[in-house]
């Protein structure tokens, strides 16, 4: 399993580059999970402006039926957000579960 761990804000280029890589991995039928923590959880919100560098986020669910999107519960609380705030379905997990995913992953990619 490839674990994509997103930690950068939406404005960071690596957010888009990591998403592109995740989409490619899914298109190649690689087992994957995506974890969002820190400011990266803001990537999952609808954009405020007209330009949306992460518009492909919708493909995760719509095209790949990808359900392994996890959000760190502490980051959610820090940013006063709810799981229902996001544009894709997510699962809220704590740091212990994130560490478990980390242990299960063959490779961890950080963006």
């Amino acid at each position: 399993m490839l674990m994509f761990h997103f930690t950068k804000p939406a404005s960071h280029a690596s957010a888009r580059q990591g998403l592109d890589m995740l989409l490619m991995a899914l298109s190649l039928d690689q087992p994957c999970c995506a974890v969002y923590s820190g400011k990266a959880i803001l990537q999952l919100l609808e954009p405020k402006g007209s330009f949306d560098p992460l518009k492909k986020l919708g493909l995760l669910d719509a095209v790949f039926d990808f359900a392994e999107i996890y959000v760190d519960s502490a980051s959610l609380a820090e940013n006063h957000l709810l799981a229902s705030s996001f544009r894709v379905p997510v699962k809220v997990i704590d740091s212990l579960k994130i560490e478990q995913l980390n242990q299960q992953a063959k490779h961890k990619l950080q963006f």
Partner: peptide, 11 residues
């Protein structure tokens, strides 16, 4: 190269 080549090598 492309991401496909990279992912396949990584896997």
């Amino acid at each position: 190269g492309g991401l496909a080549e990279f992912i396949e090598t990584l896997a």
